[in-house]
Design a protein around this nucleic acid. Structure first.
Lengths: 151, 151
DNA sequence: CTAGTTGCAAATCCTTTGCGCCAGT
DNA sequence: ACTGGCGCAAAGGATTTGCAACTAG
């Protein structure tokens, strides 16, 4: 993957990406990408489905799943397995890490420059070919901490 | 891959743990814990079930799930969500990170001292209370790389 | 027209739960 | 005996798939 996607894309931009990826630039794909790209909460397939439905009432959850899988294979989105129950997705391809609340399951981004500068220990090179590395920091977000203390 | 980490809890510890946690030290629980504790491949519930069955043929998969959940709640094992499809488990409580092969789904440990010395960026303190942080490094293990090149 | 996509329904797969029986203290 | 745990069967919930209709190029 290589095609650079600006943060706000038009249907024409999307069409261009689809052409280079040999994908049909359908209405559904465009809306799913646009919705994910404008989200900051790392939605699940179901969450995304609900949002896309407001613009494309006829869209199906299966299409959302299939489209997300396609996008992931083409490297324009990333799947986040912070929690075991459902996959979460992210269209932000810049290097960043995630904070995940184990109570409300909110996920948010943060940058960790010191980490990004680190090199993997040499031994990992003997294991195979590294393709990605990701930190997930878990805890309780402020809002859940408040609820906890007032309970 | 390498880095043998010898500090896993012993059976006396486990017995003691059951007492202090007010859990009945049943045959099943002992065997499930022992099997996980001696594994280095971060088995899933199903994998563990197959192994425990050789010693306790009557054990059920549901008991494995329930027992793992109990152990996790009591903090003597850790759940790993490296892949979205199934949870993997680890009885090694020492600080370490994971290498995960996206092809064969093997997971192995490695230590990353430089990472462990790092402090989280200050901004994360404003988010809430941090409870854990974990790196997952993904790629293709050597064995899968070989298969790929000979295919 | 033609191949790739979609929606629908059904299937899969992992995991959890209700319940009566069994086991450990 | 009491209480919690177990196995069984069934349910639940996320995700995938077969298929016929549809649509973009």
């Amino acid at each position: 993957m290589d095609t650079k996607i600006p943060s706000q894309i038009t249907f024409d931009d999307f069409r261009e990406f689809c052409n280079s990826a040999k994908l049909k630039p359908t209405h559904q794909r465009f809306e799913i990408y646009r919705e994910l790209n404008s989200a900051t909460d790392h939605p699940s397939a179901e969450m995304l489905y609900q949002r896309v439905k407001t613009n494309v009432p006829s869209v199906s959850l299966e299409t959302v799943y299939r489209t997300l899988a396609t996008f992931e294979q083409h490297g324009i989105i990333v799947r986040i397995n912070a929690f075991g129950d459902r996959a979460r997705f992210d269209a932000n391809l810049t290097v960043h890490q995630h904070l995940a609340c184990t109570n409300c399951l909110a996920i948010c981004d943060f940058t960790w420059t010191a980490f990004e500068k680190l090199e993997l220990p040499a031994q990992t090179g003997n294991w195979g070919r590294i393709e990605s590395q990701q930190v997930v920091v878990k805890g309780l977000c402020n809002s859940c901490l408040e609820k906890e203390s007032s309970a």
